[in-house]
Each structure stands twice: as C-alpha cells, then as structure tokens.
C-alpha cells in the first residue's frame, strides 16, 4: 500500500504534449520539488493548468522560462512579466479564467460532473463562445470540466496510503487538483506512518493519490 516512489520514477511519467495541473497560489503551496522534476524531464508542448504563473523562473513560472509550456489555463499572470512576453510572441496560448470558475471547473473534472452553471463573467469577455442556460429565470454560463494527465500536489503531511493534510492558506487549489489528475503525484513536507493520521483530520483521502515523491 506504500505509494512513496523515487524521483527518477516520477520523472519518467512526463511526456511531450501532456496536460499538467499544479496546485498552489502566488508562490505558496506549490509542489516546488515536483516542478523541478518536471523541468528536468524536458517534456515539451505542455498544457499547464494552475491558478497563476508564479514569479519569473519561480514555482510555476519555471515552466514559462523553460519553454516547456505552450498552453496555459489560469486566473492570473500579473506577477510574471515573462508570461506576458511569451503570450505576446505567440509562444504560449493563454486562457484566463475567473479564479472561482477555474476552481469549479477543476472540481468538476475530478468529481465526474459534466460542467457547472455560473453567473461569474456574464456581460464580460468571459461569456464569449460559452453556452448560456436559464434556470428559474436566472441566466448562467456553462463552464466545462478540466482534467489533466498528471496532477502535481503539495501537502503538509502524507501517509503511505496517500491520505493528505494541508496547512493554512497553502491548501488553496491543492485538494481540487488532487482529484482531477489521471495520475496524481504528491510532495509532502512530512511522510508519516500509515495509521498515524486521524481519519477525521484528513483533507484529501488517499484514493485520489497515486504516488508520493520520496523525501531525501
């Protein structure tokens, strides 16, 4: 039942053209070591789904600098001018989503929901090309689910079953991302023995998690 694996085995997961979803928010709660492994893998033509594009060459921003990402779905890129340049030069195709819409699309992907009806973005550029559905006289936009080939998650604690506990605002998108990957890989600050976590304190049940990066 032990899901802990070595860095080399994680690196072998990454292939050109994959969609990779990454937890974290504005450089906090990002799986930085897993991002390092992704950069070292050299996989290219990636679609990245994350809240933001980090700072230049930091956290998710490493995948802008490395040139590995060619498509990006997120809510905010203002901290990383390299992203603006990559988009202007046509190296990255950027799709901006309202943050709560992004969260709900990821949740839908992981939860087997075919989409969600949201009012966010009505009357703005966000509604362009989207179906509008009226329910009881209220208009909504249909937002479609997001999934990924590989999801990268940061947790405070993991046990060998993949049960996860997060801490404070470093939780952010991680529990959602942890549900939406065909392969879900976790890095944890601490890997604890199976049985040491109280079932009631677990934020993400281990069923969603496939692999845990070994701590050195």
């Amino acid at each position: 039942m032990d899901k802990v694996i070595a860095k080399e085995a994680v690196g072998a997961l990454f292939k050109d053209g994959q969609t990779v979803m990454i937890g974290g928010f504005a450089n906090h709660g990002n799986p930085k070591r897993l991002i390092d492994v992704l950069v070292e893998s050299g996989a290219r033509g990636l679609t990245v789904i994350s809240n933001d594009s980090g700072d230049p060459d930091y956290t998710t921003g490493r995948l802008v600098r490395s040139g590995q990402a060619t498509r990006w779905i997120c809510s905010h890129v203002g901290m990383n001018p390299e992203m603006g340049k990559a988009v202007a030069e046509g190296r990255i195709d950027l799709e901006l989503n309202p943050q709560g819409t992004l969260a709900e699309r990821i949740r839908s992907g992981g939860a087997g929901v075919g989409g969600v009806l949201l009012r966010t973005g009505l009357g703005t550029v966000i509604e362009e090309g989207k179906r509008k559905i009226e329910v009881d006289g209220v208009e909504y936009l249909l937002e479609t689910p997001l999934r990924a080939d590989i999801a990268l998650v940061h947790a405070r604690k993991a046990d060998g079953c993949g049960n996860l506990v997060y801490r404070g605002t470093s939780r952010n998108f991680n529990p959602l991302v942890a549900m939406a990957g065909r392969i879900v890989v976790v890095e944890a600050e601490e890997i604890v023995p199976i049985g040491s976590l109280d079932p009631d304190e677990i934020h993400t049940p281990g069923i969603f998690v496939h692999m845990i990066l070994a701590n050195d």
């Binding site: 890129v77 203002g78 992203m83 603006g84 943050q99």
Partner: peptide
Amino acid sequence: GKLVGMGGAMDLVTG
C-alpha cells in the same frame, strides 16, 4: 498592453 488576469475579481463582484 499589460497582461495581468482577473484573479478572483469577477467572482467577487458577482457574488
């Protein structure tokens, strides 16, 4: 001329 993104602002004004 400046690429930033909406973050959570659209959700906040809607809700």
